[in-house]
Amino acid sequence: MDALVAGAEAFIQVFRTAADVFVGFTTGIIPIVVVFLTAVNAVVKFIGEERVEGFAKWASQEGWMYVPVRYTLLAFVAVFMLTNPVCYTFGTFLPEKNKPAFYDAAVSFVHPITGIFPHANGGELFVWLGIAAGVEMVAPDMVTALAVRYLLAGLVVILIRGIVTDIIFSMMWKSRQGGAA
């Protein structure tokens, strides 16, 4: 009998703990996400699509000096303003040969951005939040610093991804053309 009670106790304890964590997330994460989402949604609507598209056209020009613009700034603005998955439509403005690299850069940024701007990818927050929740337990004052660094490191990573994918794509493209001819 005692064993049964202990078993039931242990069983229900899983859900008590889970519920405590759930309440912690609900009061800690949901309010700020809702308010933030509302604000950014409104800002995005007020700025308007035309202005963002104008910027995208400028940032999509050919030339090596636009490489950092294309794979950091343009990807950032696309993910921030249009959010996942609409952000990839910015590829439209780019030369055909840069589209795969831009996709790679943009898609690689949809998680690093969520540490500070959760609206950009609300459906996939727990890549960041899962790790952040653990950090919160041992070093609560480090979470914001970590979010900022995640964002900055993300920008460096997407620049590298853009450049590397550009090179690989042009190599594959050439060997394919060579094979066809």
């Binding site: 590829g91 040969k97 589209k99 790679d104 991804r161 590397v164």
Partner: peptide, 24 residues
């Protein structure tokens, strides 16, 4: 899908998919 959203040509998609995967 992402490349199609960016209105890429079918040939670009064909080469672009392995390019991205290899790059990773």
């Amino acid at each position: 899908v992402g490349l199609a959203l960016g209105e890429a040509e079918p040939e670009t998609v064909e080469v672009g998919v392995p390019a991205v995967l290899t790059s990773r």
